[in-house]
Simulated assay, not measured.
Amino acid sequence: MGSASHLGYFSDRKGKTPNHLPKGVFFGLAGLIAFTAGAIVFGQVTGLGVVKQELGAPVSIRDLMITRNASGHVVVTDAATREDIALYAPEAGGFVSGSLRAFERMRQVSNVPFDAPYRLIKWESSAVSLSDTGTGERIFLDAFGRDNAAAFEALLAPQGGNSQ
Protein backbone atom coordinates (compact mmCIF):
# COMPACT_ATOMS: atom_id res chain seq x y z
CA MET A 1 0.00 0.00 0.00
CA GLY A 2 1.33 3.43 -0.88
CA SER A 3 1.58 6.52 1.27
CA ALA A 4 -1.29 8.92 1.91
CA SER A 5 -0.11 11.09 -0.98
CA HIS A 6 -0.91 8.23 -3.36
CA LEU A 7 -4.53 7.86 -2.17
CA GLY A 8 -5.72 10.72 -4.31
CA TYR A 9 -6.54 13.37 -1.75
CA PHE A 10 -3.22 15.18 -1.78
CA SER A 11 -2.85 14.91 -5.53
CA ASP A 12 -6.26 16.57 -5.95
CA ARG A 13 -5.13 19.48 -3.73
CA LYS A 14 -2.04 20.35 -5.75
CA GLY A 15 -2.17 23.83 -7.14
CA LYS A 16 -5.15 24.86 -4.96
CA THR A 17 -4.88 27.46 -2.22
CA PRO A 18 -5.37 26.27 1.37
CA ASN A 19 -8.43 27.34 3.34
CA HIS A 20 -7.58 30.36 5.52
CA LEU A 21 -9.45 32.18 8.22
CA PRO A 22 -10.80 35.40 6.65
CA LYS A 23 -8.74 38.45 7.66
CA GLY A 24 -11.79 40.31 9.02
CA VAL A 25 -12.69 37.46 11.36
CA PHE A 26 -9.07 37.11 12.47
CA PHE A 27 -8.70 40.82 13.30
CA GLY A 28 -12.11 40.84 15.02
CA LEU A 29 -11.07 37.95 17.29
CA ALA A 30 -7.71 39.55 18.00
CA GLY A 31 -9.46 42.84 18.87
CA LEU A 32 -11.90 41.06 21.20
CA ILE A 33 -9.04 39.33 23.03
CA ALA A 34 -7.13 42.63 23.33
CA PHE A 35 -10.23 44.43 24.63
CA THR A 36 -10.92 41.69 27.21
CA ALA A 37 -7.32 41.72 28.45
CA GLY A 38 -7.38 45.52 28.63
CA ALA A 39 -10.65 45.54 30.59
CA ILE A 40 -9.23 43.06 33.10
CA VAL A 41 -6.06 45.10 33.60
CA PHE A 42 -8.09 48.32 33.87
CA GLY A 43 -10.38 46.79 36.51
CA GLN A 44 -7.52 45.42 38.57
CA VAL A 45 -5.56 48.70 38.48
CA THR A 46 -8.44 51.12 39.11
CA GLY A 47 -10.86 48.92 41.04
CA LEU A 48 -13.74 50.08 38.81
CA GLY A 49 -16.14 47.32 37.83
CA VAL A 50 -14.58 44.85 40.25
CA VAL A 51 -16.88 43.25 42.79
CA LYS A 52 -15.18 42.36 46.07
CA GLN A 53 -16.85 40.76 49.03
CA GLU A 54 -15.39 41.87 52.33
CA LEU A 55 -16.40 39.39 55.01
CA GLY A 56 -14.69 41.13 57.90
CA ALA A 57 -13.98 39.29 61.12
CA PRO A 58 -16.11 36.47 62.50
CA VAL A 59 -18.85 37.71 64.83
CA SER A 60 -20.02 34.33 66.07
CA ILE A 61 -18.53 30.84 65.70
CA ARG A 62 -19.99 27.53 66.76
CA ASP A 63 -18.76 24.01 66.10
CA LEU A 64 -21.63 21.63 65.49
CA MET A 65 -22.04 17.94 64.96
CA ILE A 66 -24.91 17.33 62.56
CA THR A 67 -25.86 13.67 62.35
CA ARG A 68 -28.75 11.54 61.23
CA ASN A 69 -29.95 8.94 63.73
CA ALA A 70 -31.42 5.51 62.96
CA SER A 71 -34.98 6.86 62.83
CA GLY A 72 -34.01 9.48 60.23
CA HIS A 73 -34.07 12.47 62.58
CA VAL A 74 -31.36 15.07 62.07
CA VAL A 75 -29.68 15.84 65.39
CA VAL A 76 -27.64 19.04 65.82
CA THR A 77 -25.22 18.87 68.75
CA ASP A 78 -22.84 21.50 70.10
CA ALA A 79 -19.39 19.97 69.60
CA ALA A 80 -17.93 21.66 72.69
CA THR A 81 -20.63 20.83 75.25
CA ARG A 82 -22.12 17.72 73.57
CA GLU A 83 -25.61 19.16 74.20
CA ASP A 84 -28.30 18.58 71.61
CA ILE A 85 -29.43 21.99 70.37
CA ALA A 86 -31.90 20.98 67.65
CA LEU A 87 -33.75 17.91 66.45
CA TYR A 88 -35.44 17.81 63.06
CA ALA A 89 -37.96 15.14 62.12
CA PRO A 90 -37.36 13.24 58.84
CA GLU A 91 -39.93 15.36 56.99
CA ALA A 92 -38.86 18.63 58.64
CA GLY A 93 -35.65 20.60 58.77
CA GLY A 94 -35.71 21.44 55.05
CA PHE A 95 -32.46 23.17 54.25
CA VAL A 96 -30.54 21.89 57.29
CA SER A 97 -31.24 18.23 56.50
CA GLY A 98 -30.77 18.81 52.76
CA SER A 99 -27.36 20.36 53.36
CA LEU A 100 -26.44 17.41 55.55
CA ARG A 101 -27.04 15.06 52.61
CA ALA A 102 -24.60 17.02 50.46
CA PHE A 103 -21.95 17.11 53.19
CA GLU A 104 -22.45 13.41 53.95
CA ARG A 105 -21.72 12.65 50.30
CA MET A 106 -18.53 14.76 50.36
CA ARG A 107 -17.42 13.03 53.56
CA GLN A 108 -18.10 9.61 52.09
CA VAL A 109 -15.97 10.39 49.04
CA SER A 110 -13.18 11.82 51.22
CA ASN A 111 -13.33 8.98 53.79
CA VAL A 112 -14.00 11.42 56.63
CA PRO A 113 -15.96 10.26 59.72
CA PHE A 114 -19.58 11.44 59.73
CA ASP A 115 -19.31 12.69 63.32
CA ALA A 116 -16.54 15.24 62.61
CA PRO A 117 -17.74 18.74 63.55
CA TYR A 118 -18.92 21.46 61.21
CA ARG A 119 -17.99 25.09 61.86
CA LEU A 120 -20.80 27.62 61.56
CA ILE A 121 -19.60 31.23 61.28
CA LYS A 122 -21.48 34.53 61.12
CA TRP A 123 -19.28 37.27 59.66
CA GLU A 124 -19.30 41.06 60.18
CA SER A 125 -20.80 41.45 56.71
CA SER A 126 -23.79 39.38 58.01
CA ALA A 127 -22.81 36.49 55.75
CA VAL A 128 -23.14 33.01 57.24
CA SER A 129 -20.83 30.15 56.26
CA LEU A 130 -20.73 26.47 57.09
CA SER A 131 -17.37 24.70 56.96
CA ASP A 132 -16.73 21.00 57.10
CA THR A 133 -13.71 20.61 59.37
CA GLY A 134 -13.14 17.11 58.01
CA THR A 135 -12.98 17.88 54.28
CA GLY A 136 -12.11 21.59 54.38
CA GLU A 137 -15.16 22.49 52.24
CA ARG A 138 -16.88 25.80 53.00
CA ILE A 139 -20.19 27.06 51.67
CA PHE A 140 -21.64 30.52 52.09
CA LEU A 141 -25.24 29.90 53.01
CA ASP A 142 -26.48 33.31 51.81
CA ALA A 143 -26.09 32.01 48.27
CA PHE A 144 -29.09 29.76 48.94
CA GLY A 145 -31.35 32.60 50.06
CA ARG A 146 -31.77 34.58 53.24
CA ASP A 147 -34.35 32.19 54.74
CA ASN A 148 -32.05 29.18 54.27
CA ALA A 149 -29.13 31.05 55.82
CA ALA A 150 -31.39 32.05 58.73
CA ALA A 151 -32.15 28.36 59.39
CA PHE A 152 -28.48 27.81 60.13
CA GLU A 153 -27.98 31.22 61.76
CA ALA A 154 -30.57 30.20 64.38
CA LEU A 155 -28.20 27.41 65.43
CA LEU A 156 -25.68 30.04 66.57
CA ALA A 157 -28.05 31.20 69.32
CA PRO A 158 -27.53 29.63 72.75
CA GLN A 159 -30.85 27.76 72.61
CA GLY A 160 -30.23 26.47 69.07
CA GLY A 161 -32.65 26.19 66.20
CA ASN A 162 -36.30 25.27 66.00
CA SER A 163 -36.79 21.78 67.37
CA GLN A 164 -39.46 19.50 65.98
Results as ranks from 00 to 15, higher is better:
Met1Tyr: 08
Gly2Trp: 06
Ser3Ile: 09
Ser3Glu: 12
Ser3Cys: 09
Ser3Phe: 11
Ser3Tyr: 05
Ala4Arg: 13
Ser5Val: 12
Leu7Phe: 14
Gly8Asp: 04
Phe10Val: 03
Asp12Gln: 14
Arg13Glu: 12
Lys16Tyr: 08
Lys16Pro: 02
Pro18Lys: 00
Pro18Cys: 00
Asn19Phe: 08
Asn19Glu: 07
His20Ala: 01
His20Phe: 10
Leu21Cys: 10
Leu21Tyr: 10
Pro22Glu: 08
Val25Ser: 02
Phe26Thr: 06
Gly28Trp: 07
Gly28Gln: 05
Leu29Phe: 09
Ala30Leu: 14
Gly31Thr: 12
Leu32His: 00
Leu32Trp: 10
Ala34Tyr: 06
Thr36Asp: 12
Thr36Ala: 14
Thr36Ser: 09
Thr36His: 01
Ala37Phe: 07
Ala37Trp: 02
Ile40Gly: 01
Ile40Lys: 07
Ile40Asn: 00
Gly43Arg: 07
Gln44Lys: 10
Val45Asp: 03
Val45Phe: 08
Val45Tyr: 10
Val45Gly: 01
Thr46Cys: 05
Val50Phe: 01
Leu55Arg: 11
Leu55Ala: 04
Leu55Gln: 02
Pro58Trp: 04
Pro58Val: 00
Pro58Ile: 04
Ile61Arg: 12
Arg62Glu: 06
Met65Val: 15
Met65His: 03
Thr67Asp: 06
Thr67Arg: 13
Arg68Thr: 14
Asn69Ser: 04
Ala70Asp: 15
Ala70Val: 14
Ala70Glu: 15
Gly72Leu: 11
Val75Ala: 07
Val76Asp: 00
Ala79Trp: 13
Ala79Gly: 09
Thr81Val: 08
Thr81Pro: 11
Thr81Glu: 12
Arg82Glu: 15
Arg82Tyr: 09
Asp84Ala: 14
Ala86Thr: 14
Leu87Gly: 05
Leu87Phe: 08
Ala89Val: 03
Pro90Ala: 00
Ala92Asp: 15
Gly94Tyr: 02
Gly94Met: 02
Ser97Lys: 13
Ser97Trp: 01
Ser99Lys: 07
Arg101Asp: 13
Phe103Gly: 05
Glu104Cys: 00
Glu104Gly: 01
Glu104Val: 07
Glu104Trp: 05
Gln108Asp: 14
Gln108Gly: 13
Val109Cys: 00
Asn111Gln: 13
Asn111Ser: 14
Pro113Ser: 11
Pro113Gly: 08
Pro113Ala: 09
Phe114Ile: 12
Phe114Met: 15
Ala116Gly: 09
Ala116Val: 15
Ala116Met: 14
Ala116His: 05
Pro117Trp: 01
Tyr118Ser: 01
Leu120Ala: 06
Leu120Cys: 06
Ile121Met: 09
Ser126Asp: 15
Ser126Trp: 05
Ser126Gly: 00
Ser126Pro: 00
Ala127Gln: 14
Ala127Pro: 04
Ser131Lys: 04
Gly134Asn: 08
Gly134Lys: 10
Gly136Glu: 13
Gly136Tyr: 12
Arg138Thr: 15
Arg138Asp: 07
Phe140Asn: 06
Asp142Ala: 09
Phe144Ala: 12
Gly145Cys: 12
Arg146Asn: 10
Asn148Glu: 12
Ala151Ile: 00
Phe152Tyr: 14
Glu153Gly: 02
Leu155Asp: 06
Ala157Ser: 11
Pro158Cys: 01
Pro158Met: 04
Gly161Trp: 02
Ser163Asp: 10
Ser163Trp: 05
Gln164Glu: 15
